[in-house]
Amino acid sequence: MTRVLSRTGLLLGLPVVLLVTWWFASAGSKSFYQPPLETIIKVFPDTWTGARFKSDVFPSLIRLFIGYSLAVLLGITLGVLIGANRRLRALVEPLLEFLRAIPPPVLVPILILIAGIGNPTKVLVIVIGGVWPVLLNTVEGVRGVDEVLSDTCRSYRIGGWLRLRTFILRAASPQIVVGARQALSISIIMMVIGELLGATNGLGYTVVEFQRGFQIPEMWSGVFVLGLLGVLLSLAFTLVERRVLNWYHGARAAERSGH
C-alpha cells in the first residue's frame, strides 16, 4: 500500500511541483509576454469552447485525421511494393534516400503555389510530411521478414491476399508501427505549418493570429491546446500499439527470459 502510494507520489510529484512553481512564480507577473498562469487558465474555456472549437479546432482535427490516414495507407502500400521487390528497391532506393532528406516543410510554399490554400493543400501537406517514415520503415520491415516463415508460406501455398494480410503486414508491423508513430508527430507539425503559411482557419492559424494581435494569454492557451493534442494523440497511439503489437512484446519478453 505504501509502495503504491509512494509510486503514484513519484509519478505525479514532479508535474504538480512544476505547475505549482509556475503558478506562484508567474502570479504577480507584470511582463506582457509572460502572463500569470492563472490568467492563461482563465481565458482557456472562453477561447477554446463553443464557436472557435467548431470553426478552428474541428477542421484542423479532420484534416489531420484524413492526412495522417492517407500518409499511413500510402506509405504501407508503397512500402510493401518496394520492400517485396528487390529490383524495384534497387531502382528507387537512392531516389527515396534523397527525397526523404528534403525537410517536408520546404515543400509547403510550392504546394500552396500550385494548389492554393484550400483544404486539399492542407491535407496534402500532412501527407507529404507523414508518408516518409511509414514508407521507409515498411520497406525495412517487409525486407526483413523471416526466411523460414516465408518458406513456410510457400510450402503451404499460402499466397495472395491471405499471405499479405497474415504474413507480410503482420511480420512488418513492428517496423510499420515505428514509422506510424514518427509520422504522427510529423503530421501534427505539418498540420500547424500548413496553417501558418496559408490558411484562414485552424488551430495553428488561430494561435498565430493571437500572437500577431498581441492576445498573449490566448496565445499561451493555444500553445497548451497544441501540446495537449500531441500528448493525447500519442497516448491514443500507445493504446493502439499495445493491441497491435501485443504478440511482439510477448515474444520479445519470452526471448529475453531465455525460452
Partner: peptide, 23 residues
C-alpha cells in the same frame, strides 16, 4: 519521478512553441 513529465513534454509538437519563441 521524471517519467510522467517526460512522457507529457515529449509529444508536444515543437512548432507549437513557435509563437511563444517569437514573443
Amino acid at each position: 519521478a521524471t517519467a510522467s513529465t517526460i512522457e507529457f513534454l515529449r509529444p508536444i509538437p515543437s512548432v507549437a512553441l513557435l509563437p511563444l519563441a517569437i514573443v
